[in-house]
Design a protein around this nucleic acid. Structure first.
Length: 821
DNA sequence: GACCTGCTGCGGGTTG
């Protein structure tokens, strides 16, 4: 049978399903059958799964013409998905396909949900097509004789590659790929990705830095444009609409008609507590929705979440209030409407959420944007434009994640052991470790065998032995076991499990929240009123309660900052505000009263202007700056400017910031002229000034917590008996301190700082922002009172008390004040 | 006068 004939079979099959084959499918089949690697860019719900199952099966038929009488045993292809939740759907698709085609191939799943028994059975007899997660694949590499499992694999497909490419799970994935490539000579690597700004780079990350290999691969773009209809909910009376806030409950009644008219609706909120609040408020004001409404977020028990997902699929739920937990994965066909409450902070996140509705080829997605404060109308306007111009963010890959490399090398040492001279070039071929030097690699080897320089005295850090032939191998069963338990790059937050007294797991909650409650107190969680009974063994035992006005928990999650694309779009919209342009969006027009007020008290900047406002209140002297660059950049820029100002003249500040700008507050007048005369926005000496200006060590210490866990320096405990997170924090801090004092050139210690500057403070973006400000005219407005622009920032400070002043300075200042009075 | 904050994802031993 030749390739053409085989393709016909597949085409016929597609016809039988009444599916219109997309052009990219044939292109993908051809490239795969030619032995090429590649990246397929296709939206969800476009049949992309089949685009890659088909050629894998075709290749199998081609290789084994008498496959019916003599089916090939062992693993043929691996499908990696970042979400367990997707495994079942992919498995069903694959099974249906091989069954209809009558090919004797077996399909299996291997993930955390797979039982020990099944896992063992699988190891004896691997399915032909294995669906797994990056972590479970890594665990397979920690198995004795893994090379035999993988030696005949012809294809690895990494699904949702855009989700992995910019984090450590992606790094881990590429390390595994580097090994598989060496084991299996006819392996093809394929990624499937949603549209992202840097698709070309995503391909390079997937395939490694070998230029020839990348040049011989293909990048296939599906070119299917999903129609998205964005509608914003505009407050009827902007004068009474708050200048700040994040909940958006003022507009609750405005969405009721939308809920009633839609078959089913997802309401996306930005935080878990906001999700709880919206759910509760809708039910309170519209009890008629009871039974039709549910909520879904990451701290709720998996059981409840799965139930809700199933109900959505079946169309038996009308409304689900959720967080990012429903961004991805499972496709809910009956959902026809999306409501986004508050700014989504990034264009791709917004589009991703919009895409949850009308999830069928050819259908239009509908998303409503509900602003939670006045300035978010600018965001609404910007998002509408972004969607029609298909602006998408880059996903920036990690570089030199030594913690992941340490884990990977121990993984290899746990199974069959490794020879550095074989593994070094493989590691170096990955995007993440392309600049890894022989010295650095040697340092890592020393680290896993001796525990590095400062931990040499402790046996527990000597995990790997060097055997007489030079093989690196773990011989201790205890070390191997602990390592397997801790494979992966996701480090969980410190949480307590919430359970009913009579049993029944509800979800997880932050230690910091629950410690403020006493037995008998009532709180709301997962939409229920719960009375705290007692806390025991990291478990919160509760009873049902009917009491109203319960406290709502907050979780300490990651903070979302504007993406650089989003910041850019916001500025573009802002610059339109002053124009009398007739085609100004209705969102911007609605802002008119606030615009008039801002222009009266201060000014709305144009494209060539950078605004600084100063005013005095009873709190002190305020200076507010508006780069519109997002929270993270403002955090860094605020500290930088405060530091540089204090060099000119001793002064101390309190700094506040949000996505729009930052504020310096002092008890002395702030010399803005000095900022202008001394070029304090210069991007020169950025890193060294930044290092001196912020408490980099404190931030790095927090980053180091994850690094310590991933690299195996800190053990998070056995499944049944988790180590208390406080202990975890303590030991990672202890180690941080040791390295700081005795081994500052420790690569893991240094990595904590690199991550702080590059990922937390976004040094690269800060640099660009400073350059932009330097090219603008700085307009300094001395205002009589807080302006609409400054109000959200200065009130934010009342919550987050972040001070640049040292305790000693503060005490000194307070004493002087006392003396004066 | 304006203000209830901070997402998501995975994994959990061995042998005959």
């Amino acid at each position: 049978m030749n390739r053409k004939e085989l393709e016909h079979i597949a085409h016929d099959w597609f016809k039988q399903q009444n599916w219109e084959p997309f052009p990219f499918q044939k292109q993908t089949w051809t490239a795969f059958l030619q032995g090429k690697n590649g990246l397929l860019n296709a939206p969800t719900g476009s049949g992309k799964t089949y685009a890659l199952w088909v050629p894998i099966v075709l290749e199998y038929m081609k290789r084994h013409p008498n496959y019916k009488s003599k089916p090939q045993k062992g693993l043929l292809a691996i499908w990696v998905t970042p979400l367990r939740a997707l495994s079942v759907e992919i498995k069903q698709a694959a099974e249906r396909f091989v069954k209809d085609l009558d090919v004797p191939l077996t399909v299996g799943i291997r993930s955390g949900d797979t039982s020990t028994k099944e896992r063992a059975a699988q190891k004896r007899n691997m399915p032909s097509l294995l669906i797994t997660t990056p972590e479970s694949l890594q665990l397979l590499l920690a198995t004795k004789g893994y090379d035999k499992i993988f030696k005949n694999v012809i294809g690895v497909v990494v699904d949702e590659w855009h989700e992995l490419v910019a984090n450590k799970r992606g790094v881990q994935m590429t390390l595994a790929l580097s090994r598989l490539n060496a084991i299996s000579p006819s392996l093809r690597t394929w990624g499937v990705s949603a549209t992202i700004g840097n698709l070309e780079q995503a391909r390079e990350v997937l395939l490694g830095v070998d230029k020839e290999r990348v040049a011989n691969s293909v990048l296939i773009k599906a070119n299917i444009r999903k129609k998205i209809n964005v509608l914003s909910i505009i407050p009827k009376k902007i004068e009474k609409f708050p200048w700040r806030g994040h909940l958006g409950l003022h507009l609750l009644e405005d969405i009721i008609p939308i809920l009633e008219e839609s078959q089913s609706t997802l309401i996306f909120t930005n935080t878990r507590s906001q999700c709880e609040i919206w759910f509760q408020n809708i039910l309170e004001k519209h009890p008629e929705f009871a039974g039709d409404i549910a909520m879904h977020h990451g701290s709720m028990s998996r059981e409840t979440r799965l139930w809700i997902e199933q109900a959505l699929r079946e169309g038996s739920l009308k409304i689900v209030v959720c967080t990012s937990s429903l961004d991805l994965g499972v496709d809910f066909a009956p959902v026809d409407t999306i409501i986004q409450v508050g700014g989504p902070k990034g264009v791709s996140r917004f589009m991703q959420r919009a895409g949850r509705s009308g999830h069928q080829p050819g259908k239009t997605s509908v998303i409503y944007f509900l602003p939670t404060h006045a300035l978010e109308l600018i965001e609404a306007s910007a998002l509408i434009k972004a969607v029609s111009n298909t602006v998408v963010e880059d996903r920036v890959p990690y570089l030199n994640s030594f913690d992941v490399l340490v884990q990977y090398l121990v993984t290899l040492a746990v199974s069959d052991g490794f020879y550095p001279e074989t593994i070094y070039p493989e590691v170096k071929s990955t995007f993440c470790f392309q600049t890894l030097t022989a010295e650095q690699f040697q340092w890592i080897l020393n680290f896993i065998t001796l525990g590095g320089q400062s931990l040499q005295a402790y046996d527990e850090y000597k995990r790997v032995d060097i055997e007489s032939d030079g093989k690196f191998k773990v011989n201790s069963r205890a070390v191997a076991m602990r390592h397997r338990l801790q494979i992966g790059t996701i480090v969980s937050d410190s949480v307590l499990n919430v359970k009913f007294l009579k049993g029944g797991y509800i979800g997880s909650i932050e230690e910091s929240f629950i410690s403020k409650l006493r037995p008998g107190d009532v709180f709301t969680f997962a939409g229920r009123q719960l009375e705290l009974f007692r806390i025991r063994n990291m478990q919160v035992l509760v009873k049902k309660s009917k009491q109203k006005n319960a406290k709502i928990p907050n979780w300490m999650g990651g903070r979302m900052s504007f993406s650089s694309e989003m910041s850019h779009l916001i500025r573009e919209e802002l610059y339109l505000l002053n124009s009398n342009n007739a085609d100004k969006s209705k969102e911007l027009k609605a802002l008119e009263p606030i615009l008039i007020r801002q222009n009266k008290e201060s000014l709305v900047p144009n494209a060539d202007e950078f605004l600084i406002e100063t005013f005095k209140t009873r709190e002190g002297y305020h200076a507010v700056f508006y780069p519109f660059e997002g929270y993270f950049v403002h955090e860094a820029m605020g500290s930088l400017l405060a530091y540089r100002l204090s060099l000119l003249h001793p002064i101390s500040f309190t700094i506040a910031f949000n996505d729009y700008g930052f504020e310096l507050l002092s008890d002395q007048p702030i010399d803005i002229q000095a900022i202008l005369d001394n070029n304090l926005f210069s991007s020169e000496y950025l890193r060294s000034d930044l290092e001196k200006s912020i408490n980099a060590s404190e931030m790095a210490k927090r980053k180091f917590r994850d690094i310590a866990v991933i690299s195996g320096l800190v053990f998070t405990g056995f499944p049944s008996k988790l180590v208390k997170s406080k202990h975890l924090q303590a030991s990672s801090q202890l180690l941080f301190g040791v390295f700081e004092d005795y081994e500052p050139d420790n690569l893991l210690f240094q990595q904590a700082f690199t991550e702080t500057f590059e990922h937390q403070l976004e040094e690269g973006r800060l640099q660009l922002a400073l350059m932009r400000i330097n090219s603008q005219n700085i307009i300094w407005k001395s205002c009589a009172k807080p302006t609409p622009f400054s109000f959200p920032i200065i009130t934010d400070r009342l919550r987050a008390k972040l001070s640049s002043e040292k305790l000693a300075d503060r005490i000194r200042r307070m004493t002087i004040q006392l003396e004066k009075s």
